[in-house]
Design a protein around this nucleic acid. Sequence first.
DNA 1: GTCTTTACCTGTATGC
DNA 2: TGCATACAGGTAAAGA
Length: 286
Amino acid sequence: MPELPEVETIRSYLDSVLAGKAIMSVPHLDDRMVKRSLKNGAEIRAALVGQTFGSVRRRGKFLLLGLASSPDALMIHLGMSGRLVTESLDAPYRPHTHLVVRYSGGELRLSDPRRFGRIAWVESGGLWGPHLGMEPLSSAFSSKTLGEILKGRKVAIKSALLNQNLVAGLGNIYADEALFYAGIHPQRPAGSLDVDELKRLVRGIRAVLRRSIEHRGTSFSDYVDALGHPGENQGYLKVYGREGKACRRCGTPIQRQVVGGRSSHYCPHCQRLTETSSEGAHHAEI
DNA sequence: GTCTTTACCTGTATGC
DNA sequence: TGCATACAGGTAAAGA
């Protein structure tokens, strides 16, 4: 499931490979993947051919493939099961391949069985995609700014962290991991976090994202990087996908609970729903 | 505006 | 073995 670390891993590689490459042709583009776009499929193909790739950027989980001589860009979102890889011209297509961009030296290919991903043509840098929240790895992201974002909100903190309009890039895996790091129960009302909790949460979000980027992302089923290799962060997860297994901190079995329609994994001992003012507080009854 | 629910979509796992 | 059903979840639209 591509979240910020996975998308960043792909971005980093594509930026090093694609920048400066001439776009020869677009052999395939499935119109069903073009959603909320300034150009339709045929127009995107026409606009790309003859251009040269510029830098590859990321905003939240959105990838932005820039062009050397145009402010416009090709935006790609990988959804749940999207794979964006570079391959040699003679490599066989994977099933569910929806986009092929042939450049000098290879092909950029997007495959996405579930088709939750998205391709769109966007104009000039800032005004693309939905209105996205703060970048959690930016210097502007702090306990103060996060507190302002969450102030007054009654929704569960887990749901707030998944809301891309508030913070951009967290998905189910890293929201759970960050809340565990911070010792915060996923169902705590978002606006109820105190200063210490906000500080721990900001540290947690940064820590789990950076660690995963170092490990080239988390691969459970679908995700691979732009070279087609799985990531290695799955072995470092503390709660996600560990229902029933012992908490790595205290040994209590990890629980799974649906919060805001999404499964949430947490340690009922380390992440209590009742108010606790600091880490390692004494036991509290629920 | 905030929050919840539902739709989209298909591979995989589970149950009968 | 085969079929039906449930489940996974990122985004966005609809509903409350």
